[in-house]
Write a protein that binds this DNA or RNA. Sequence first.
DNA 1: GTGCAGAAATTGGTTGGACCATTGAACCAC
DNA 2: GTGGTTCAATGGTCCAACCAATTTCTGCAC
Lengths: 243, 243
Amino acid sequence: MTDSLPPIQTTARDDAVLKALAGFVRQEALGPGEKLPTERILAERLKVSRNTVREALTRWEGLGLVERRQGSGTYLKAAVSPDMLHMPLTLAGGNDFAGLMRTLEIRRALEAEAAALCAIRAGKAEIAEIERKLNIMEEAFHTRAGMSSEEDWEFHQSVYRASGNPLFEQIIAAMHELFHRFWEHPLGVRDFGHASFPYHRTIFNCIAAHDPEGARREALKLIATVENDLKRGAANLKLSDRR
Amino acid sequence: MTDSLPPIQTTARDDAVLKALAGFVRQEALGPGEKLPTERILAERLKVSRNTVREALTRWEGLGLVERRQGSGTYLKAAVSPDMLHMPLTLAGGNDFAGLMRTLEIRRALEAEAAALCAIRAGKAEIAEIERKLNIMEEAFHTRAGMSSEEDWEFHQSVYRASGNPLFEQIIAAMHELFHRFWEHPLGVRDFGHASFPYHRTIFNCIAAHDPEGARREALKLIATVENDLKRGAANLKLSDRR
DNA sequence: GTGCAGAAATTGGTTGGACCATTGAACCAC
DNA sequence: GTGGTTCAATGGTCCAACCAATTTCTGCAC
């Protein structure tokens, strides 16, 4: 009967600090890259100990919202608003090849859905932006004679953004980071991803034609080529030697 | 030219503390719910200040790995291993109806893929377990004459587990938590989700028949009914009144 | 012995102050 | 300009207390 009576908060200093800081960021309209007040100033203004400020900032740093540089200051890394919801995921044992394939399975699911939604929702401006990124990527591919992961990634991001759901970009970006941390570590990118090249344009064509099922199908093909490349590479390279 | 020269790490005290703690947890074979050493003992044993220990534990707490209870101790909340990868997601402005629908789009993508993978990979034991959960859910539905979110959720979890990729369960669980935090707050669950009931068995039938495309199709239907229920509910309830 | 109230010990939370390490800007010699 | 040097600002670490919540122990009443 007396559920939903939240326990009173007698101590939640660091949470309060974060709330105040989020309000400050909003009020000052601070964006990514900008510097926020020093710990000492925050401690003084908020009437709490510097240690408490540090614990609060440590939370934000762990969430990737903020970056601390000794001797320089604390800088925003992402947009912050007072009504954020946090969803920390921890993936145990993701450092091996099997873990890599698992992230690809997630990416396959999200990539296909994002492409389909993008085909439904993208307006003229978004389609033009995607095409711009596609052209950049294709030019880089032809001049440097190989996949360039940077431009490739930019193309995909523009698709995620046009899907109208920022969660796609966030989750896939996290996967992407995991992916690169493992893959580019040993000896740099090889011929990797070469076979996936043509599907970028077929995906774009489906998006431009507002064909969600086609976009989904082509995105699945793209991921399938990446998976095959990975499996071949793993077989050749004796991945078990690593780490 | 001089790429791949990572900056050297001169100080990383709290990271070192976390690594040592992860090793300790592994060595002692500690599982969720168990208590780990007090901050004072950790500080003494690791030869660092208690403050540093606290910063490290604050990181883990923010990641949901650990729970601290004042006056009692610090307890493990999840399994930890030295080679974990963290992926914190922050969803800005997820407190409204649009944010809820965005989480559902992610869930649609993952649910369909997980069901398909499950149809491919589930062995006899997994299928039996899923059927068990399904029967429990159906019985609860008939006796209580309505969807029971607890048993429903258990059924879905068993599908994710049988997909062979723990990431599905982790990500969807995070979405699920977000979902409930928003939805069950105002006035409890209404008739919600009633229409999705029959699809649970059709999904199971496809999984048992090892029909991945059928499982994907039925899963998409299930999410579609939930989306429709939500939209109808939102239109009726004037959700804009909230918050 | 049992039960329970109160004291005592334990443990995370907070404070204030100190010092170290790194950074970046100002300054200076060349 | 170039390359050092100095110096203030800033995050990182440490220490020693004390506060607040919890748990455990103790001793008294029965």
